[in-house]
Design a protein around this nucleic acid. Sequence first.
DNA 1: GGAGCATAATCTAAGCCTTGAACAAAGTCG
DNA 2: CGACTTTGTTCAAGGCTTAGATTATGCTCC
Lengths: 396, 396
Amino acid sequence: MGRPERRTVRDVRRGNRAMLLRALYFGGAASRNDLCDATGLSGATVSTMTGDLLGDNVLVEAGLVDSDGGRPRVLLRVNPEFGFVVGVDVGETQVRVELFDLDMNERARALYAVHSARHDPELVARHILVGIDSVISEGGVSPGQVLGVGVGVPGIVEPGPDALVQAETFGWQAVPLGAMLRAGTSLPLLVDNGAKTMGQAELWFGTGRGTSDTVVMLIGSRVGGTIVTDGGIYRGAGHAAGEIGHLKIVAGGRLCKCGGRGCLEAYVGAEAILDRAGVVADSAEEETALARLLESRSPVLDETVELLGVGLSNLIHLFNPERIVIGGWAGLMLGKSLLVDIRAATAANTLLQPYKTTSIVLGRLGPEAVAMGAATLVIEQFLQDARFPAPVGTMS
Amino acid sequence: MGRPERRTVRDVRRGNRAMLLRALYFGGAASRNDLCDATGLSGATVSTMTGDLLGDNVLVEAGLVDSDGGRPRVLLRVNPEFGFVVGVDVGETQVRVELFDLDMNERARALYAVHSARHDPELVARHILVGIDSVISEGGVSPGQVLGVGVGVPGIVEPGPDALVQAETFGWQAVPLGAMLRAGTSLPLLVDNGAKTMGQAELWFGTGRGTSDTVVMLIGSRVGGTIVTDGGIYRGAGHAAGEIGHLKIVAGGRLCKCGGRGCLEAYVGAEAILDRAGVVADSAEEETALARLLESRSPVLDETVELLGVGLSNLIHLFNPERIVIGGWAGLMLGKSLLVDIRAATAANTLLQPYKTTSIVLGRLGPEAVAMGAATLVIEQFLQDARFPAPVGTMS
DNA sequence: GGAGCATAATCTAAGCCTTGAACAAAGTCG
DNA sequence: CGACTTTGTTCAAGGCTTAGATTATGCTCC
């Protein structure tokens, strides 16, 4: 049973401060009065709270705005340079490390190619650690200003201080990536599945923006996803929820790389689509190959749309989300020309009432958003308590 | 984005009081000191709070317990007669109205047979209203002591004061059951899907007890379910989440009553199993027919288990719940002899890490739990604020 | 240019809430 | 009967939000 925690009068402050900070972060610059409306707090509280936050340098003033015939309002905003966050994308072909300010402006970037055959955990960890130092110095910030590091990896991340990673694609079994990184840096660290980090990016800055019950389906070579309930990523009991790629839509169907049969990924992932169409393409050529397939209007695509509709139908029947965002490079490519058909295929497989309340849209962000999304994990924690230095990072 | 609400110092009290009440309701009788441990609150707070609640008659003393060599502790418990709740089950063949005290002891019952062909909404509403009056007087309580009425209906219930019900089985389209009942009673009213109310019963009093991320799958003639995240029923954006019966597991497969193809219900619901086995049975005979099929070890059952495993796999991959409870009369019947096979079929279709963290168990409650679960909806609200008379019931 | 007005932000007193610590209550044991 | 143990209550202190009063800062109009 979801045990609510004991609350003291100080939690009230913490909660309200977080709410105010969120309003300012997602709503942009606002006056103290605007914040009263946005948060429901009284002017007095907003006044003292913003006073604190200005004093801590978390907020800065952002100009004046005339108010017809009265004292002009002072706009406040989150200080984008209050702190910085690092986002890491551990991908098939490269490790990508980026430094962002709080506005998610990229300040520095470091890329390390990895051979897709050889994903030595040690090597990956070394790349990440070197990358962190590199972007921090290149970005011209001091390590003390960095709020934390978010890392997006393929596969399932078990919670705990070690952040055990199970990534079949890499041949990783229980790789304690968290522990390995912690040995080389003292920055707060958050490790999560790359599809989840990207999903959070779509939720915060993409077409998922403003929703609180959302499913993000990411279709690349393979298929992943993020399930958002109540404004936050749903992770389930063992942090393995949201494995949309392995949703079975054809009992006993095509063999999937996971060893199972009939997974969504085995039909609508780019790799699977090309395979089903009889196209031979290595991972570097997939993108052009899929584009060519789309031009040719291959009948395989009709089937793909139909099966994707079935998958989306399942998501709607189980979650009835406000919005489903289809992203990932292949998802965007398919959606660009076939979104109408995808919606129709979904409608045909879904009960009317839940279908009506769910909208299906395309994502806005490309694969580079994995690192950005990973960085938002850190920002999420920052918005939670707005303290610095942040409390020691716990694995998520 | 899940907007947290503004909090004032009074919300602290409300929240802590609800927590204390929940601890007492689900944990049974406890001393004030026990409550300190259970809630994390200080002795002073527990003392004043229990003082209030005793004064309001929400709690009562429940005897003394020796404490080796010190003042004996006074046990406190929720007063089962502080208030009463009514639970209604609108089923295929009957409308069932029951009165419970807060300990969920049944105090009175009223049954009204309905012809399965003719589910006139007016008639059903009349049965419910008459039933409410009947159980209240038969139970010997005054209407003023009734905290509210929970109603479980088939189909999807749209939120709002009207509680529009979409129930294909009954041929109901947007029946404003909430409005119809409100015209005849002033008691707070909560209408929800019957599978959800029964799921909550399993969560509170069945094998789901103590978990907070749980999926309850109910297999009767048809298939329904409840998804519990964070200790509460997940309803999604349009209150249509958890339609487990219409999860597609065979794209383009058997036709389902919903008009779609390949739904789980079209394979593992009792009606579907019998149909697939070529057995003709009307709804009254289904139970014995399925029992006979089980005895005969029909090969249809192997297929059923396999497909059920696929369905469960989907639930695990999406939710990674702590526990999956299989209930409903057919579910219990199947599970009794085939649970091991069902688990094996699920494991074969599921990634290892999420499978490991999810346990699959049988439910404990029978179909009569729909009404009880409906009544718990009212209790849930009561535990939330422990005020009486309860705030005017909002539809859930 | 100054008085009056409008809007924004801050200050103040009051009312709740939890807490630790002191205190009262109610037993056991020798 | 007195020492000891455990349970439960009372009280002053410190935090919090709020409504309302007050101060700050600009505009408009004569």
